[in-house]
Amino acid sequence: MNDEYTPRIVGFLCNWCSYTGADLAGVSRLKVPPSLRIIRVMCSGRIDPLFVLKAFLKGIDGVMMMGCHPGECHYQKGNYNARRRFILLQKILEAFDLEPERLGIWWVSASEATKYAKVTTEFAKEIEKIGPSPVANEIFL
């Protein structure tokens, strides 16, 4: 079973910085992990904690939240809100031993294609090391 395991990772990317950064990484032909599925949101502040919880309960192996660097948010403060929500999510995941290390947040600006390629590759490797999510095959959810 483990031989054929390729992790499934969901990335919530803000439109103005991280998504553009991902775009630039593509244009620059940088290598990014194929296991990452990107969902574009207008701002990291749009990432409802329920999106993340739902992803985990659907059996997703890792979730990446990405937004503009603090102080650079297109909407002034969306990423500050996202940062607090990330803490909230981490506390809830910790409380139930739901492997909080499967969730991460990164600030990636539109020009940081190399950073984007680096963090996604590293995170994908990390998730591969942790192994498949135990939630994936749970039927009594």
Partner: peptide, 28 residues
């Protein structure tokens, strides 16, 4: 599609999601 992947599925599903989600909303 969930059923195809897991072989079975709770009905109504979302029990754990409800409680975790409520925690996200009001635990603070």
């Amino acid at each position: 599609s969930d059923l195809d992947r897991k072989g079975a599925l709770r009905l109504p599903s979302g029990t754990i999601f409800y409680h975790l989600g409520r925690l996200a909303h009001i635990s603070i």
